[in-house]
Write a protein that binds this DNA or RNA. Structure first.
Lengths: 147, 147
DNA sequence: ACCCAAATCGGAATCGTTCTGATTTGAGAG
DNA sequence: CTCTCAAATCAGAACGATTCCGATTTGGGT
């Protein structure tokens, strides 16, 4: 069910099986995510990318496509602090969190998740969901060599 | 500097010292937070409260006041998943996170914070900030008895 | 080649938030 | 107590991200 897609083709295949049609615009959106595996993109950034190929594309199409991709577990959304939703190709592994570079947008998965520990500590609270986001600068962006 | 305010009076005093004027509308906003210490309120909810007392209050005033209170460390903002900013009286204790009830908006502080552990695991990533938010339902809202 | 639901378009609508220009008001100085 | 002026406020327009709508186009099965 939650197969992780490695190529644009396998993703488009999955969409087809889910009853969605194949279109050039959808391919353009999927391509962007596949070719930038660890990057988050805002809807605007996706729009800019697609409109280079299809100048007449509308935001409606972008948002609709993003919605489908989220629904199909191809990409995952995240709310950045700047209140624009961003999306990124779904990671291979199960539940985990990320270090997000504030400069280049790279996301680096980490193992640590505190939710089990917390769940034990507060048996009376019915936890439904949680978000852990860690912001900073990756080694490359932190200022050249070491910093 | 980061004194924690226990009363409306001490907050208004702090605002005065920061060069802000005292107005009834500001008092109404501060009152709401002080009288509901562990609750998050959206700008709309604050507006609704203030407009009961001052029917002509505008959103501009609400947002301006919220901005000042955040700047003065009287309240702290949080972005809920429903993409409306919410605010709550600044907590007394140092850094910590909360369980947030999706129904009533109550926020329950917890001790657990995974950031030190994570910092050790990724020495090459320069962590600047992080957010951990846990959503669910408090005992009271979880559906009466148990659910 | 034909058909129809799905996809797309462009533009309007919505929602939370911010800005603008004109008017009012808190509070210090006289 | 009045004068004064920057700060505060107001009403409404503007804004940016996202969604909706009616009309048109198109992928892909028959």
């Amino acid at each position: 069910m939650y197969s992780v897609h490695e190529t644009t083709a396998s993703i488009l295949q999955a969409l087809k099986e889910a009853g969605y049609k194949f279109t050039g615009k959808r391919r353009a959106v999927v391509d962007l995510f596949v070719e930038n595996r660890d990057r988050y993109f805002s809807a605007k950034e996706v729009y800019d990318h697609v409109s280079q190929i299809y100048p007449s594309v509308s935001f409606d199409t972008i948002y609709r496509t993003l919605g489908i991709l989220v629904e199909q577990n191809v990409i995952e959304p995240m709310e950045f602090a700047d209140d624009r939703a961003r999306y990124r190709l779904q990671c291979a592994r199960g539940h985990h969190h990320h270090l997000v570079c504030l400069r280049c947008g790279a996301s680096i998965p980490i193992e640590e998740c505190p939710i089990d520990r917390i769940r034990q500590q507060v048996p009376n609270f019915h936890i439904e969901d949680h978000r852990l986001e860690i912001y900073g600068y990756c080694d490359r962006c932190a200022g050249g060599a070491d910093n």
